[in-house]
Every structure is written in structure tokens, then in C-alpha cells.
């Protein structure tokens, strides 16, 4: 189950554990169902407790970025741990200006 908060039209999702192709399927469905029902202005993905992420996580981030653009909202990423930064920066996601 996802740990989330919704405050001032910001939906914050506290991701945790390992993000790979296996776990990203459920994360995608749960995040999309919440953004579709709440229609937040901003989707904030908090990576503080993420221990591992491979390129499936990049797909997850890019997919949610597209989803939020379609809904007319924004997305941001906070608390990226050091060991996950490398895979994120390799993807070029930082050029979208979503990493805070």
C-alpha cells in the first residue's frame, strides 16, 4: 500500500523499498488511480526511503510525468538518494526540471 498525503492540491507519494519492473507495475496503477481521482495540481514523488531503482523506475517517472501533463498538472521529485541519482541522471530526466 502506498503511503501518501494530499495537502494544498499537492499529492505526495512516499516511495520506499526497491523499484524494479516487478514493483513498478503496482506503483504505476496506485499512483495513477490517485491522480485520476484527486486531480492534484502537483504530484510529488518522494524517494527518501527508496533503497534501489533500475531503469524501470525511469519508465515509471516518465510515465507519471506524461500522466500529470495530460491532467494539466505538474510533477516533482524530491529527496533522491545518492545511489539512485546516477541512474536518474543517465536518463536525462533532470532536463525536465522536475528534480527539486
Amino acid at each position: 500500500m502506498l503511503n501518501t498525503t494530499y495537502e494544498n492540491k499537492v499529492l505526495t507519494v512516499f516511495l520506499s523499498g526497491e523499484i524494479d519492473q516487478h514493483t513498478s507495475k503496482n506503483l504505476r496503477m496506485e499512483i495513477d488511480s490517485q491522480t485520476e481521482s484527486l486531480r492534484p495540481e502537483t504530484l510529488c514523488l518522494d524517494f527518501d526511503n527508496v533503497k534501489f531503482m533500475d531503469s524501470s523506475g525511469i519508465g515509471l517517472i516518465m510515465g507519471r510525468f506524461r500522466q500529470m501533463s495530460l491532467l494539466g498538472g505538474r510533477m516533482k521529485i524530491v529527496n533522491l538518494p545518492e545511489n539512485i541519482k546516477r541512474v536518474v541522471y543517465l536518463s536525462g530526466i533532470q532536463t525536465l526540471g522536475v528534480i527539486k
Binding site: 533500475d54 531503469s55 524501470s56 525511469i58 519508465g59 516518465m62 510515465g63 541512474v87 543517465l90
Partner: peptide, 14 residues
């Protein structure tokens, strides 16, 4: 579209 297409790029870079 949920796949980033970065699998081999990650392997080669890491």
C-alpha cells in the same frame, strides 16, 4: 511507453 529504453545504456554506463 512505460519502458524507458535505457536497459543497455545503464549496463554500458555502470
Amino acid at each position: 511507453e512505460e519502458r524507458a529504453g535505457l536497459g543497455f545504456a545503464v549496463m554500458e554506463s555502470f
